[in-house]
Design a protein around this nucleic acid. Structure first.
Lengths: 164, 164
DNA sequence: ATACCTGCAAACAATTTGCACAAAC
DNA sequence: GTTTGTGCAAATTGTTTGCAGGTAT
């Protein structure tokens, strides 16, 4: 009981599954599944590291075909983020950026070298929260937790990033 | 041993002590203690909640006397932040902002109602880190942890913030 | 005296908005 | 056919930079 089991094992988000899940959520939520939005989704799904809105917009230009306008890109990011399909990473490798995520209480472990992100649940902060609540008389309601380190691949290759 | 003791108890940063400490650090570090910088320091010390660069610049105008230029404000913030005298808060009450802090490994508990910030050490993440390292083969080197909740004052006054 | 610091104003970067037109249900 | 989404371009907002002159040590 000192080491709670994680409900799901730490893992990268599967891009294909993620896209399907988002499309499903859009349908159910009454959001229209349009070409521009799908393009955004597809380009996001290809990232292996945190990305910025700016970068996404630029990359969409390069992916051939018509690229969605800035407004659409920003608005789609907004949807995805507020619904929990994207999480924000602060510090670490991607100094600040979005990563694909799944709705719910999840945290992220980021490789500071290549930007690979592993999602995990089970943050085991209960004792800390209880102690702080007692010491400070706060009613603690939430938290932000992100871990940084170097993934196996990046550690083996002394300094060659493993992401492309 | 299941509940490690915090090296120092959770507490607000004392504005006076903070200002003195920063001045000392500036001296020792060879940074000049100038009027504009002192004004910035003083205005920051008065905040009881996370603040933004923008807000600081505006407030400096109102504090009477000559206010430092934008460049000075931003450059001073940069110094203070990189030396650990300011920490960044993400999410919670101050959607994003700086708070006075002390150099070293510290985390923050933020009141989502009034923005009061409590600093604490002893994040008790060792077990979690060990588990994740084993499961993911990452070498985990650092983390970001911030907690959000409502302070005693804000909880008592159903919805009246306790900060001014 | 001589670094270092400051203010200004312009450059830059990032994000938001209004609105006419187009597409989805 | 109505509602929702899109693209554009301009407006905002936030931050950085170059440089001539000023100031702390």
């Amino acid at each position: 009981m000192t080491t709670p089991e994680a409900p799901t094992p730490p893992a990268r988000v599967n891009p294909e599954a993620w896209m399907q899940a988002v499309r499903g959520a859009w349908r159910v939520g009454g959001l229209r599944v349009t070409e521009p939005r799908l393009r955004v989704l597809q380009t996001i799904a290809r990232y292996g590291a945190p990305f910025s809105a700016e970068q996404l917009y630029d990359d969409l230009s390069r992916d051939g075909g018509e690229r969605p306008g800035r407004a659409t890109v920003y608005r789609t990011l907004e949807h995805l983020h507020s619904a929990g399909w994207l999480a924000r990473i602060h510090g670490g490798a991607g100094e600040a950026g979005y990563v694909t995520s799944l709705p719910g209480h999840v945290h992220h472990l980021v490789c500071t070298s290549c930007g690979t992100v592993i999602a995990f649940a089970g943050c085991a902060l209960d004792e800390l929260v209880a102690r702080l609540a007692a010491q400070t008389d706060f009613a603690i309601e939430g938290h932000l937790l992100q871990l940084y380190g170097r993934c196996a691949t990046c550690r083996k290759a002394r300094s060659h990033p493993c992401a492309d």
